[in-house]
Amino acid sequence: MKTANFNKMLLALSAAGLLFGGYFALMEWFVGPMFVTNDALFWTLPLVAYIFLALTSTGISILMTAGELLNNKAVIAHKPVLLTAALSLLIGAFAALTAEMGSPLHVVWLLFSPNLSSPIWWMGTLYAVELLLLGIKYYALLRGRPLGSELWLTSAALCVAVAAALVLGSVFGTAVGRTGYQGADASVLTLLCALASGMSLAPLLFKEQAREVLQLPGRSMLAGLALFLFTLYLYSSRSTVVAEIVWVQLWMPLLLLGALLAYKVKPALSALIALPTVLLVELFFVIQGQMQVLGPKQTWLGAVQSYMPNTAEIAILIFGCSVAYLCFFLFNRLALRPGGSAD
């Protein structure tokens, strides 16, 4: 009863979010730019919305596929909901991305003239493949019986999910000449973010009695990200590189530890702390590498940028989340309808 009301409220909010965010997405696609971007600070909240949703989807995919491969009963029992969640989040991510890139078709065209040395190409392609794999799995789910190659499919989905999360980090990690971006730690960060946000969301998808299985991996992932951020914090606050703008802040690992503590008893509260924190971690990380204005752009924009998202950008985040939730709702409905096999 309570849950049903809550679901209705979420549904209404998502519908409103779709309208609100959709307006800005349409403006961005067809009219003109609305974000607070410029030639130095070009990746802002809309891209972070994509990253956040995609990585969360990845986290859930990893949980689902790993659980399946390890034959974990609890996970397998929740496979439909995990699958629809992962699929929906990824669709939401792509929805946000289309707005960020100014056109839905831009995202599609990425695939057609590949540059194998480009992390973005790999990221886009891997996520497209992931979308496809999840889609096939969902199709199988709808069909009500497993495909012959389900094992292969699941293994592939796991590999692709892990690779996609790592490659997403390398989009930043391979940039030369931007303080704070270079290095493999970017990939570690994105993978940890994926796992942390996925595992934070997972308890909410699980039936209460089945959540036990999540405790160790969930809390480990939150602890892992917290530890990683804390290490980065210690490292960067001791940094003597003048140009380096420190983006990791102490509240990030601390909030994650809070989420960790609440994980068992109050999973909803834990998610409410962890998910925004992960989003902010991703935002701070993405913005940071663009703060220092490079080359002649300094004569246009000054030497250092500052950033505060505007309504349109927040709207795209809402748009992505709303699309994700509505898809989730819809996919679940489809999967659960009479004749559907789930549960």
Partner: peptide
């Protein structure tokens, strides 16, 4: 109409 749309079309022609 925005040339952007034209661009899309030409792109589609090119690819498909």
């Amino acid at each position: 109409m925005d040339t952007k749309d034209g661009w899309k079309l030409s792109r589609r022609q090119l690819l498909l």
